[in-house]
Write a protein that binds this DNA or RNA. Sequence first.
RNA 1: GGGUUGCUAGCUCAGCGGUAGAGCACUCGGCUUUUAACCGAUUGGUCCUGGGUUCGAAUCCCAGGCGACCCA
Length: 511
Amino acid sequence: MASPQPDAQSPREIRAARLQKVNDLKQLGLNPYAYTWDVTHQAAALQEKFTELPNGEEADFEVSIAGRIMARRVFGKLAFFTLQDETGSIQLFLDKKTIQTAMAETDEQAFNHLKQLTDVGDFLGVKGVIKRTDKGELSVKVSTYSVLTKALMPLPDKWHGLTDVAKRYRQRYVDLIVNPEVRDTFRKRALITASIRRYLDQQNFIEIETPVLQAEPGGADARPFVTYHNTMDMQLYLRIATELHLKRLIVGGFERVFEMGRIFRNEGISTRHNPEFTSIELYQAYADYHDMMDITEALIVNAAQEVLGTTDITYQGEAITLSTPWKRITMHDAVQEKTGVDFAAFTDLAAAKEAAKKAGLHGVDDCATIGHVLNEAFEQTVEPSLIQPTFITDYPVEISPLAKPHRHKPGLVERFELFIVGRETANSFSELTDPVDQRQRLEAQAAKKAAGDLEAQSLDEDFVTALEYGMPPTGGMGMGIDRLVMLLTDAPSIRDVIAFPLLKPEQGGTD
RNA sequence: GGGUUGCUAGCUCAGCGGUAGAGCACUCGGCUUUUAACCGAUUGGUCCUGGGUUCGAAUCCCAGGCGACCCA
């Protein structure tokens, strides 16, 4: 018999009571923190295998399973536990006679100890046979059990679960324990990234890792995180893109490369932005942005088919069809459709601004070029309406310093961005390969940066030198993995698809 | 950056100027077919923090912290 339990009500006392049970288990010679358990089956597979087992029948099938106790329904000489493993859950049918007979040699009070010393939250290993109860619940009729890990902290309300979003993110492990759909999201995320890698592997792309720590961050318009290397005594930046190094690999002779990895941007946090996020960038020699549209469609459709089994999805109540081909429209045409203004017709900046204001746009006064006015018009009028997958093509050169000039349209570049549910999901160019042009464009960016534009790009001399050795015609594409996962898992916030999103410390700063 | 809003028991929430509450969880007793088990009993609090108003503040006011939503 276990020692009498102290009253346990407050979390402090609950913890104390559970620590007492830890000691009681040790007194009985049982290790409350076991080393291994021989698991023969998982819950979901058993549920699947025995769907046909009639109520009240026992199968001649022995199993040894393990998991966390999620619910306890205890009677005098009978108890039902719900045991949860990674795949799902299964009921334990705990009959006093069966257990005390089977465990007589090790613990003659085995059933009473089970009742007294286990709690919701503990990990339990059991051996027994499969049976379906009279009431129809598939169960393991337990002969022997072992406490594998004693939990000290109580779990959240079994019915309401954990809903406080801040707590869910701060204590994701608790969120994962009690909210099965959260586990499902991260499982799907893994399947999505695996399907992308598998597809690219089939297309003979190879993944090469490029540096996170860089002396000069480049490849995107974004503010970097700054860090410091002690022995080299130098300031370093966390990468804001993988672009410039992957292109160096194309210069080096690889023809199909990609990297899926973490990117860091020192910017705001929102439902669509986390300071660290995952991107994939891929580069294919001898290809252009049209080829990149095809591969982008293929990657996303393939992922949807493999993970969801369909290309017809719902995002936050909105029906989205991913079946290809997706709409392709130039930025100029898209803006003209919405505003009635053809910005391609302008040669005078002031006139373009005038027309933009007449069309009801705001914030165009600061625009330095007609291209910036066009982009502003696009972001304000077109972007939110791009719910179904749409490639917006042919961007102004002023906002695309790494893209090759359009082969037919002066002032534009061969670039597209993919929008789904109003969000930029991918960005791609026919890559600029002319080192002289590239130098000029990056010098212009560096000048803007020197003038105080914190998101302007800088001049990476070594990258330009690489181009001077000659880069073959290349198509490149970058995609936000988190946003893709949000789309395919119907997640409203990027924090729902990042296991441990960045949060402010709960107790506030030190200053 | 601006606006709106939330923070009360381990969890989910009520209370909105007059003794801090409910359900679940926990503890004790009972129970061999439960599955939000049930029946009975006992319990559990820095009402986010700090000031202020008041005879009296979880409640009203001010400042701060951490979130959520909307706008820029």
